[in-house]
């Protein structure tokens, strides 16, 4: 799948593609066109343009509503109503900064934890197996099929028993998932064992080989796993909804949902919360577009 989604790779030159490249060149240099866009192309361009608008406009409405003095959801930016009051109320009265901080801490813990433990396990399964390790790996694979909702109720009890309810760790721990092990292991198959054996002959310890040779070689997949972990943790809703009872420990996603619950018709405030919650993943997506698409699509994560 990682391979499938590398959309940045060079497009295979099909016949139509060659022609259209050619067209562009002609257009630019001589002003003649070898193949006019067909009426089909125009119709498709209009249809796809409409879909692009449909995908983006709800977020535009969200942002526009969030900066206006309004108790309505609105599609137009009325400069007379412009205000940052919603954001002031969001951060001062509704402790949204606290929620942002909680989410950031949880995401950082989840990413570090997931990457460290998954890459260690993948290293052992692929490059340092022991009797029975393949059987353990199958247990890992089996857990990947279990929907999160199945573990929800006991997880709540266990977290309570461990005295971890309303802690950052409790929000981050369930993010650790066998999928990361599977993903990194697949990538490690590409590292020749001869390379590691050579290092062993030179007297390198397992840990040194893991840290100095294997980890640098699997960096791309670790980035993909980090993106996947970030997004699934940031966007997670059900587990925080169930396990967070202390308002000071709400994640942004939970806080954004709760704003709607409490201030249903205060659209300006509700949209300000949604905007802040949305801006963090959006910014990262804009900055790391390729890694995002790869990380998300290779994992089957649900936002």
């Amino acid at each position: 799948m990682t391979e499938l989604t590398t959309d940045s790779r060079v497009d295979r030159p099909t016949e139509t593609h060659k022609t259209s490249r050619h067209d562009l060149k002609n257009d630019a240099s001589r002003g003649t066109v070898a193949r006019h866009p067909s009426s089909g192309d125009v119709a498709w361009a209009v249809a796809l343009g409409a879909l692009v608008l449909l995908a983006a406009l709800p977020f535009v409405f969200m942002a526009v509503t969030s900066v206006q003095e309004t108790m309505r959801m609105t599609a137009t930016l009325n400069t007379a109503d412009f205000t940052l009051d919603n954001y002031v109320r969001l951060f001062l009265e509704n402790k949204f900064a606290q929620a942002l901080l909680t989410s950031v801490i949880v995401v950082v813990i989840a990413c570090v934890l997931n990457i460290v433990v998954c890459s260690m396990a993948a290293f052992a399964f692929e490059k340092n197996p022991f009797p029975g390790s393949e059987a353990v790996f199958w247990i890992y694979i089996a857990t990947m099929m279990v929907p999160g909702q199945v573990t929800l109720i006991p997880l709540y009890g266990i977290t309570g028993d461990l005295g971890l309810l309303n802690t950052h760790l409790a929000l981050a721990l369930p993010v650790v998932n066998a999928f990361g092990v599977f993903l990194i292991r697949q990538f490690m198959k590409g590292i020749p064992n001869d390379l590691l054996d050579a290092a062993r002959i030179d007297g390198a310890t397992d840990f040194r080989i893991f840290l100095r040779i294997v980890i640098p070689l699997v960096r791309p997949v670790i980035v993909a796993l980090a993106v996947f972990t970030f997004l699934s943790t940031w966007n997670d809703f059900l587990w925080p909804l169930v396990s967070i009872t202390d308002a000071g420990m709400e994640t942004v996603t939970l806080a954004a949902a709760n704003l709607q619950g409490r201030f249903t018709t205060d659209y300006g405030l509700v949209m300000a919360g949604a905007t802040v919650t949305f801006l963090v993943p959006l910014t990262l997506y804009v900055l790391l577009q390729r890694q995002f698409v790869e990380g998300i699509v290779s994992s089957g994560v649900k936002g």
């Binding site: 959309d7 796809l48 879909l51 692009v52 995908a55 983006a56 709800p58 977020f59 409405f61 969200m62 509503t65 959801m73 997004l231 940031w234 966007n235 809703f237 996603t253 939970l254 954004a256 949902a257 709607q260 659209y267 509700v270 949209m271 919360g273 949604a274 919650t277 949305f278 993943p281 959006l282 997506y285 577009q289 995002f292 698409v293 998300i296 649900k302 936002g303």
Partner: peptide, 24 residues
């Protein structure tokens, strides 16, 4: 552009999508 923009809703959390669409 089509591929990038259509991917934006994927990046958004379901809660944000739900809050916004509810308001619409």
């Amino acid at each position: 552009v089509v591929r990038s923009v259509l991917f934006v809703p994927v990046v958004s959390s379901l809660v944000v999508a739900a809050v916004v669409w509810r308001a619409i």
